[in-house]
Design a protein around this nucleic acid. Sequence first.
RNA 1: CGGGGCGUAGCGCAGCCUGGUAGCGCAUCUGCUUUGGGAGCAGAGGGUCGCAGGUUCGAAUCCUGCCGCCCCGACCA
Length: 439
Amino acid sequence: MRLSRFFLPVLKETPSEAQIVSHRLMLRAGLIRQEAAGIYAWLPLGFRVLKKIEQIVREEMNRAGAIELLMPTLQLADLWRESGRYDAYGPEMLRILDRHERELLYGPTNEEMITEIFRSSVRSYKDLPKNLYHIQWKFRDEQRPRFGVMRGREFLMKDAYSFDVDEAGARHSYNQMFVAYLRTFGRMGLKAIPMRAETGPIGGDLSHEFIVLAETGESGVFCDRRVLDLPIPGEDVDYDGDLSPVIEQWTNLYAATEDVHEPARYERETRPEDRLQTRGIEVGQVFYFGDKYSKPMKALITGPDGVERPAQMGSYGVGVSRLLGAIIEASHDDKGIVWPDAVAPFGVGIVNLRPGDGAVDAACAQAYAALSKAGLDPLLDDTDERVGAKFAVMDLIGLPWQLIIGPKGLADGVVELKRRSSGDKQSLPLAEALKVLGA
RNA sequence: CGGGGCGUAGCGCAGCCUGGUAGCGCAUCUGCUUUGGGAGCAGAGGGUCGCAGGUUCGAAUCCUGCCGCCCCGACCA
């Protein structure tokens, strides 16, 4: 993409409404634009990151055996009356009347709908287990939206729902998602720690929150710092095999949010030098909740013994849009965002320091073609801005690499390659720079 | 939902107390100069001062109501 053709409305000054660093940077770098309290338009740069994150989530869900579908944003109130949640949910749920005065709601979650879909066609234990997920916009009418996309009212969420014939099966499904989450967040360059969690209004008896450690996070956390060094399962992890050793490894070390923190146990189970008290951002949560929905909604499975029982269910959420904020909170400096390679909106920014200079233009074109061909998705700054402005914008939007090409360097036969995360710069011939980048 | 604050040009703000021709910086446009880390000079365009009502000869400014947004707390994927 050429910057001169792209839509990148960056802001030099910080809008006054933004309080935390990720919100400020998302506005300044032209990722989002606020349309109403807690409701954002995704501008092209932010949209690219959102899609990258979404795709990583999708790939890891598929790898773990979950099946993607897509449910609507609007749901009938009657469906929620079956589970009793229509009245229980409160003003956070956005309720809507259509022209026939039928009661609808903009879904804050989809347990009822997936249970209804499931029960309409599945009757036998032979059809289980099943894990169905979708990535869809949700709405929760937060009393007080804040922190940009970290606590918006409208948000993009991946939610998966598992159906098993018995508790042992359901726990295996839970473990599959647990492992898939370790991989998902790891691929995004995040240290997301599974922590014991309260089950909240969704209910159930087994739950973990996945927390990204960030000093600007919204909740306090206590953990054994050795949890930061635990290995993330590889691509070859056998999701059909016994995953409990992985789960045990990750849950044996103390890790809890302040809501469920037990000081006495913390003191007992951790060495003083390993105690880490910091803050974090919740980016995912896994629940096992048994027959909470399948029983009242009569999602019944006939077992091998011929007896009908409610399906054993779990649900597994990832805050896709929130992840942008979380990643930025965890990865930025005073100049701007520092995108991890896997989610960067472009792989490399090519900075043409002198558009109109034949040699510089030609070198940029050569780099652009080679990097494009290698799938590195370059962004070429071919604008007439001054170099200072170009560098400032490039640092602000946080592309992992900057390939800086100007007349002075070219006269010496070199270009400059800069790694955004470290700030390291090296001067080298273009061909070698391209080789470093993998083109 | 309790408490506080703010709505004036695309963004950041002053003006309001004490009513009288709507301003500043950045951004935008034009010209000239400049050009390896957010340039300089000169000129230009851009506003129903959140909305509605009231007081007044006259309202951005005073009064009333409404709407929107932000912050602290409670709450929360």
